[in-house]
Nucleic acid binder design. Structure first.
Lengths: 258, 258
DNA sequence: GACTGTGAATCGCTTCACAGCA
DNA sequence: TGCTGTGAAGCGATTCACAGTC
């Protein structure tokens, strides 16, 4: 899981479970594809397959939205596209700003998936003065000094942080102070925000680490036994660090913060 | 949640819950930061705060790995860094290939968080012949024709797909056929893979859609009442589409696949 | 006959609360 | 005394299985 909210204990939104909300975009994508092929109706089984979930889950999810299907027939594709879009709030325009126009920020600015779903890149912001004015994805980059002006001037409530980790919290604070209440964070840091502000995070290297865990497990199973659970290596003692500890695989790994 | 596996029913790995595995990289990041500041030990409370979780959860998580703490004291930072690294499989080198060197692929190739955690970008692959040989992040891009050779030649078991949606399944099939067993998918498509292959996905626009849902809810609450649950708009009938349906917010949204 | 909608059962994760140990 | 480690309780999500409806 690449993501998570900060705070908000058990405040389930409008009765729709969080897990369901997280799947609605998946259904929407699958439905949109069907819509383009002019498929009029679809069964829970078919749609579930297209979205990569099982049909019981899909039907349960849709039951939270209301009874939008027809027994014995299935779901009307166009109608469901509209209902889910509305439920997700995509029937309105969401101006977003992207802060930090490095490789990743530029990729995000160019990403077609945003614009096509009601998200409009209202501004690109970077701290590097030499970037100012340069167009990225056809939008001129503005300097961080303008941040507050841009947010309030465009009524931006969603911000995307693609800065280095060190700058993220500060940028976050300024975004929040200027009125942003939802943040998508690509920087590898835990952001702290006041109540009422939502944060979702995407950490590219975390996903790879989870894959590595399973990959290692596969390799271990091939060779029968489980990978040694608790190696007889040195245990903590009172002192810290530097005791040349080694594990079954070799040396202490070169782990560093991003 | 930005991510999910495909298949694998209830095969909990070595007794460590999936949810715990997904948090280990978070702990590792926080611990690495402490390690760099030469902090020798840390309590569950402190570490939990740094990782953005609560302390009960953290202790439970660590209890699945073994008893690595000292009652009355806390956890030895260096020792825990090593144990978690080992558990995640980061004590070994993982060659990865990135397929699709557009904006996003280039950003990934340049992303420092990979290399610093034992992931080595073994090759960059793109279908565009004019890209071939051009260096990105210091690594020359190779043509898709070389894919199989590259995978087997480097013993690559993890592949990253950053192609357009249309090419993703085909690339996936070739990666799997060549021996890749873990895939990180950035393309907005559901990939189908044989048993034994893990897929994790990151969809940038899905995260924004989830934020939009909550954002909309906040706005709705300000104005007291809930947003109308089931509008009296036209219901499906037998025929599909094009009936000029409108919702409370205006028109049918312009949703499109990425 | 086919497929949706949903109560009930189940599963897994989180949280509580305290026993166990340095 | 302070903090970890963990059974047990609580809770949300998934799955089952079938009644309801076209």
């Amino acid at each position: 899981m690449a993501t998570g909210r900060t705070h908000r204990p058990a405040t389930r939104s409008r009765g729709i479970p969080e897990a369901t909300v997280a799947r609605l975009p998946l259904y929407l994508r699958a439905l949109t594809a069907l819509s383009e092929r002019s498929v009029p109706t679809v069964s829970s089984e078919e749609l579930a397959a297209a979205a990569g979930v099982n049909s019981a889950k899909l039907r349960k999810d849709f039951s939270y939205l209301g009874s939008y299907g027809t027994r014995g027939v299935g779901y009307d594709v166009e109608y469901l596209v509209y209902q889910i879009s509305r439920e997700l709030g995509l029937t309105q325009d969401w101006p977003v700003v992207i802060v930090g126009i490095g490789n990743l920020g530029a990729a995000l600015a160019n990403y077609g998936g945003f614009a096509s779903r009601g998200f409009r890149v209202a501004a690109l912001i970077d701290a590097d003065p030499s970037m100012a004015g340069k167009p990225v994805a056809g939008i001129p980059v503005q300097h961080t000094d303008e941040l507050e002006k841009i947010i309030s001037g465009n009524g931006v409530s969603i911000g995307v942080i693609a800065t280095p980790a060190g700058a993220a919290q500060q940028v976050c604070d300024r975004l929040v102070a200027a009125g942003v209440t939802s943040i998508l964070n690509f920087a590898p840091t835990v952001l702290s925000v006041p109540d009422g502000v939502d944060v979702r995070k995407v950490d590219l290297s975390i996903e790879l680490q989870i894959l590595a865990f399973h990959e290692q497990r596969k390799a271990g199973e091939e060779a029968e036994g489980e990978p040694a659970a608790v190696p007889p290596a040195a245990r903590p003692g009172a002192s810290a660090a530097a005791d040349g500890r080694k594990g079954p695989d070799g040396d202490v790994p070169a782990v560093m913060p991003a």
